[in-house]
């Protein structure tokens, strides 16, 4: 839980990953603030901030006195968002590194093809 970005962002991302990969299905209960804090060894206020990011984004919803749940449609929404980010996070750095090493786009797509076959 430390790659230098704010921890609450990492918490939100961690939970999103679990929603995307199906560990936390839609309408299932999300770990409580205190459970998250204890598990990640972080301040509960930080865990709350992470949760609130997802509540604000409509991914999670609160039910007073019961807990926090994954919203219906959250997975599809997160997937769409992640696909948008894929270009920034993976394609651009990949191309930048390829250019640095003198690999042209044709060679690059050949490499990807070979990797898929292997």
């Amino acid at each position: 839980m430390d790659d230098g970005r704010p921890i609450f962002v990492q918490i939100a991302e961690h939970l999103s990953n679990e929603i995307i990969n199906g560990t936390m299905p839609e309408e299932s209960r999300v770990p409580s603030i205190n459970e998250l804090a204890a598990f990640h060894r972080i301040n509960p206020a930080t865990a709350l901030k992470g949760i609130n990011l997802l509540v604000d984004a409509g991914v999670l919803y609160k039910q007073r006195g019961i807990g926090m749940f994954v919203a219906t449609g959250a997975r599809a929404e997160l997937l769409a968002q992640r696909r948008d980010e894929f270009r920034e996070q993976f394609i651009k750095p990949l191309l930048a590194e390829a250019t640095k090493l003198g690999i042209n786009p044709v060679q690059l797509s050949d490499l990807i093809g070979k990797e898929l076959e292997s």
Binding site: I33, N34, A37, A38, R41, I42, N43, P44
Partner: peptide
């Protein structure tokens, strides 16, 4: 110490 601090602080 850190674990017990967090656990008790939470409650």
């Amino acid at each position: 110490f850190y674990d017990r601090l967090l656990a008790d602080y939470a409650v």
